[in-house]
Amino acid sequence: MTATERIWTFVTCLVATLVVVFLATPLVVTILTSFGSSSLFTLPPPSWSVRWYQRLTSVRGLGSTLLVSVEIAALSTFSSIVIGGLASIALVRGRFPGRTAIGTFLTSPLMLPGLVIGIALLQAFRFAGLRDVWTSLLLAHMIVTLPYAVRTIYSSLLLFDFTLVEAARTLGCSPMQAYIRVLIPALAPAFITSGIFAFLASMDNYAVSIFFTDAWTKTLPIMMLNLAEEQPDPTIAAISSLLIGLVLIFLIICDRAIGLRRIVDQH
């Protein structure tokens, strides 16, 4: 290796190290702030405390908001995996024209600005006379979660050996039984991973939700946005830290299910 090359290798590694620190910064800052005693976001905080976590119990509406968010995320994720999984089987196994186009269409909400989807749905639901906040949120969030389900399940199905289903048929399973007993266990990691990323996408969504929430029914990101605008104090950092903890647990599950490197490939 020449001297110039060694310098370039060193610079590359230095930049990469700084980038790792840069990427970690917002998460570390959030967690440190949430355990500080000061309400002024001084870092490092003058002393440590859990007062912002204790204050969470007195934030009005936090419990019901969290419940709405979890309900919407869980239900939209589950429905997306069911209809997205079925669609993926059709796209991989079917021999009909336009399969690529349908695949692109089903994942296209990922490429469009969330706000535009939100506005389009706001006008459509109003036209259809749908006024219920909870139902609107659920229908809208399925547009957010479905692409994640289709993307992950489709790419796992491409790797799946369908002769295994045929083998199960030969061994006496009915077509339905063959699918349930062979395909579903083989796809379990894909269901877990797509489910987790769809669930997180729904839990974090603000661009679509912002048009459907009202004073009584809102989702967690909308409530956090309101808090950040009205009374920015470390209470939001405490909520954020709990969310970071949740993501960490989910990622450990994903890592067990398919491994870190395949999570990277999914993106």
């Binding site: 917002p26 800052v29 997180l200 974090d204 603000y206 956090m224 939001i236 969310l243 993501v247 993106h267």
Partner: peptide, 15 residues
């Protein structure tokens, strides 16, 4: 790379 990617935008923007 993956951890920050999976954490919500509002959490990071607030940070």
């Amino acid at each position: 790379i993956i951890l920050p990617l999976s954490v919500g935008v509002i959490v990071k923007a607030f940070a």
